[in-house]
Design a protein around this nucleic acid. Structure first.
Lengths: 136, 136
DNA sequence: TATTACCCTATAGATTTAGTAGGGTAATAG
DNA sequence: CTATTACCCTACTAAATCTATAGGGTAATA
């Protein structure tokens, strides 16, 4: 299951993608439009800024804005920052790989086998979908 | 992320799929072979029996066994019983559908849009993979 | 009749999730 | 200069979920 953090994060990003670039949008504006708790959204946008997706401006007329063109932001990047691994098990994760404690040989593991397929197909979708695709 | 319950459940099912049908296998045997806590596995196998995948036999020479031919058990069924919804958000789930509280219109929701694609591709893999495919 | 091995309920520690609380600080408008 | 705006940051917490463990009960078999 997708966490609310990721869900809200994607919603906020697409909201920003629909605005003119570099025009700051207040957290409160996004919060109200998308029905997201203001304080929770605050921490989400903060993490998106720290990971390089967003810029921010303080004071009156301030807010958050996208740093890149939406069509240059693939969903793989968004998902990895917000949700973490795309794979359903760590042993098939590209960016968050971890060996299973119980499994002596990944090559003959049934779970590994099928989850690798799932990861590949999911990854292909996220790779070929950008923020621009979602904001239309 | 896949729960350990699902992971262990799949491992146990594939283990049973490799045996001759209707030959009971002790929980302890599976537990030792697959490095799964015996007590935890017990509850998992119990739920698999209750959902119609497994039969069981008590007493000496007893254990669990598959009720159907592995090639007639698609992974969609296994996943839904063990893990629950296949979709990453309830609003795109076929069997566990739920409307989002925050989202006024699913048709224009960015999250809904992309997660629908992910669900479709994941579903296709699970539909076309049976327990027999995993146990080879 | 002793043993085996599944059956069942309850509980509990650890972790993650989904926020909330409460103030701090930089920037801007006037 | 100063009041206001709106982001910045840390810490905390209630609730849910996960991952088991505990402790026996019962049916079947040899």
């Amino acid at each position: 299951m997708l966490s609310k953090k990721t869900k809200y994060g994607i919603k906020a990003l697409t909201f920003l993608a629909r605005q003119d670039t570099h025009v700051p949008v207040r957290i409160a504006t996004i919060s109200e439009s998308e029905n997201i708790s203001l304080k929770f959204l605050e921490t989400i946008l903060l993490s998106l800024r720290k990971s390089g997706f967003l810029g921010s401006k303080k004071g009156k007329g301030g807010g958050y804005y996208l740093l890149k063109n939406p069509k240059d932001i693939p969903m793989t990047e968004v998902m990895r920052v917000l949700e973490g691994p795309i794979a359903m098990v760590p042993c098939v994760s590209l960016n968050f790989y971890e060996k299973c404690q119980d499994c002596p040989d990944e090559d003959i593991c049934a779970v590994n086998k099928i989850m690798l397929k799932v990861r590949d197909s999911t990854l292909e979708i996220f790779r070929n979908t950008t923020l621009a695709d979602l904001s239309n």
